[in-house]
Amino acid sequence: MQNKGINWQRVRSHIMVFDAPLAILIFLIISTGIITLYSAGINFPGRVEDQLRNILISFVVMWIMANIPPQTLMRFAIPIYTFGIALLIAVAMFGMVKKGARRWINVGHVIQPSEMMKIATPLMLAWYFQKRAAALRWNDFIIAAIILLIPVGLIAKQPDLGTALLVVAAGFAVIFLAGLSWRVLLTLVILAGASIPIAWPMLHDYQRDRVMTMIDPTTDPLGKGFHIIQSQIAVGSGGFSGKGWLKGTQSHLEFIPEHTTDFIFAVFSEEFGFIGSCILVALYFLLVVRGLMIAANAPTLFARLMAGSVTMIFFTYAFVNMGMVSGILPVVGVPLPFMSYGGTALVTLGMGAGILMSVQRHRKLVQT
């Protein structure tokens, strides 16, 4: 009987691995996403079923990552990062081209390697700073910047500025949390602002058009500005309490672009209004706060940096998506976390959530 009790305790310790506050917040956001997707994809049979399958896969990935100790994960940092860079180079050489972008490669199954770099890059950076923690110098930050810029450059060349932005955010969060001073941060911001005139001619025509459309979409209301104008109309027409579930006209009449993926927030805002949007923003805010709490209580530098970077990924996803749908940021193709339809991004988010849960779970195991 005693052996059975011990065995059950071992099994239970590998099953009950989820951090309750984090899991509840993710469940609420995913549930909101399914409700919204049912309305947004009413003209696309099978979308909800496919998303439920994606959620199940993401859940399994989350469970697996939550069971892997941060120390074990750290050992795979170099192989995962190197493998990701190799895939990005392979994409640049003979990747698949869709809609003018070379982002995919067929390895028996079509994959988008840039997605894995959202986790692989901060993982590598966290490993590097953990190894250098005892004698951290200014040149270590330069090497870290190079580690970050290699995948960012390869991803931006595809071109995929949305994913490149997310990788920058996750990687920079690691560098900042590792001890980058505010003076250096302020200097980088100033240099970035000063480099805009130099970088502007280097952008693709469609990228410059997105920026100009963000500034004033009415300059081409029936062309490049049409979609963002329709998205803003959807957000504004929801009013205070919304038009009601399944009653959004902008999405059902196909005015909103990509209304099951990148622009699902416009569908949600139209049907649930300002109140619903505030509740959704509050859920994301609490998700970020919980992630920061886990990062702050992490037992090692590596765990703290990884938890902080994953939290920054969640924040950047939500902020950029809501910003572009509302018209205050350029459209860069970033999905709304745990709500937008899609498999690869949802699995990446599940992996990130699993890392947070692993950090929290193994912190408790160390304490006990």
Rank of each mutant, 00 (worst) to 15 (best):
R210D: 09
Y206K: 11
R208D: 00
V235N: 01
I215E: 00
K243S: 13
D205T: 14
R210N: 10
K247M: 09
K224C: 03
G236W: 13
G242L: 02
Q207E: 07
L203R: 03
G225I: 04
F226H: 07
S231K: 10
H227F: 13
S241N: 07
H204N: 05
R208L: 00
G238Y: 07
I215S: 00
D209V: 15
L222K: 10
M212W: 05
T218C: 00
I215L: 12
I228V: 14
F226A: 03
V235S: 01
L222Q: 12
M214Q: 05
D209F: 06
F226D: 02
S241A: 12
G242I: 04
T219L: 13
L203S: 02
G244Q: 06
T213V: 11
F226K: 03
G223Q: 05
D216L: 03
W245I: 12
D209A: 15
I229C: 12
Q207P: 02
T213G: 01
V211H: 06
K243V: 14
H204K: 15
K247L: 11
M212L: 14
T213A: 01
V211L: 15
I229V: 14
S231I: 09
M214P: 04
L222M: 10
K243H: 14
S237Y: 08
L222F: 09
D220M: 12
I215K: 01
Q232F: 08
H204S: 01
P221N: 06
F226P: 02
S237K: 13
I233K: 08
R210W: 12
R210Y: 12
G223R: 05
L246G: 00
K243Y: 09
Q232C: 06
G238F: 09
A234I: 09
K243R: 15
G239I: 12
